[in-house]
Simulated scan of single mutants.
Amino acid sequence: MNDAIVHAVEGVVTTPWVYLALYAIAALDGFFPVVPSETLVITLGVFAAATGDPHLVLVIVVGALGALTGDHVSYAIGRRAGPRLFARLKPGGRTQRAYERVGRLLEERGGLVLIVARYIPGGRTAATLTTGATGFPRRDFTRYAVVAAVTWAVYSAGLGYLGGRAFEEKPLYGVALGLAMAFGITLLHEGVRAVRMRRRAADPESMDRTPEGVS
């Protein structure tokens, strides 16, 4: 059964059409986050290592271009309809809190938020929409979005490639390993962030406090 699945997948990933599909899915994921672009990039990275097709560099380049396109579409949506979209969010809901958090981070750290948010589930869409809605300069947005898209594509394809090298004879195991590593890294990031948020909530004046003996 596994061999049949592998052969079916190989029949798809060895055709040039896979790059078009990758571009489209990576672009859609920029403003329609239920599309699993990271899963696809990891999977293609696995088969690039295990079988040589598709080409790893092309997976990275096409994935990054698709992600950059989707980010700009999301930015444009935020620029045109951001205030109306935010007004429809449920007060106090998870989505509203996410957008509010991104807005605060944009004020504090600027475009660096776009790079960090690219690795947070659902964060990339919130970041790009909010960036557009707040009137963040398009030229600065593009500069940070390029860095975010390229590093994300290298990271995702790299995880897949490592999984593929570990299980060259069983690519499906490589896909599972790549996805597990991505999930583990995301979980670690979210855990660290949750701990930091709890500490700040418990001691909100800690950042402003002056150490004893310092005038």
Rank of each mutant, 00 (worst) to 15 (best):
G63F: 11
L65T: 02
P54V: 00
G63C: 08
L56H: 05
L58D: 13
G52V: 08
S74F: 13
V73Q: 02
T69D: 07
L56I: 09
A50P: 14
A67M: 05
A49W: 13
H55C: 00
T51V: 13
G66I: 04
Y75K: 01
A50Y: 15
S74N: 11
H55L: 06
S74Y: 13
D71R: 01
V57F: 15
H55I: 04
V62N: 05
H55N: 10
P54T: 04
V57W: 15
G45M: 05
I60G: 04
T51F: 15
V46Q: 08
L56K: 00
H72P: 04
V61N: 05
G52H: 13
A49V: 03
D71M: 04
T69E: 11
L65S: 02
V59K: 02
T69I: 11
L58E: 14
D53R: 11
A49M: 10
A49L: 08
G70Q: 12
A48K: 07
T69A: 02
D53V: 05
S74V: 07
T69S: 07
S74H: 09
L65C: 05
H55G: 05
V46N: 06
D71P: 07
D71I: 01
V59S: 06
L68T: 00
A50H: 09
A64C: 09
A64M: 06
V61G: 08
L68P: 07
H55F: 10
V46C: 06
G52C: 09
V57I: 12
A48N: 12
H72D: 12
L68Q: 01
T69L: 06
Y75Q: 00
L65W: 13
V59E: 08
A50W: 14
V73T: 09
V57C: 02
L58V: 06
L65Y: 10
A50S: 15
A49I: 01
V61Q: 05
A64S: 11
L56P: 09
V61D: 06
D53H: 14
G70P: 14
V46T: 08
G63N: 09
Y75T: 03
V57T: 06
A64K: 10
I60L: 04
V73G: 01
I60E: 03
A64N: 11
A49D: 13
V46H: 10
H72C: 00
H72Q: 11
A48S: 15
P54N: 05
V59C: 12
D53N: 08
S74P: 12
G45R: 07
G70N: 11
G45Q: 06
G45D: 08
H55M: 05
D53E: 14
I60S: 01
T51W: 15
L56D: 07
A64Y: 12
V57G: 09
D71Q: 03
P54R: 01
G63Q: 10
L58H: 14
V62G: 07
L56N: 02
V62R: 01
V61L: 14
L65H: 09
G66Y: 12
T51E: 13
A49T: 02
L65M: 10
L65E: 03
L58N: 10
A64V: 02
L56S: 02
P54K: 04
G52Y: 15
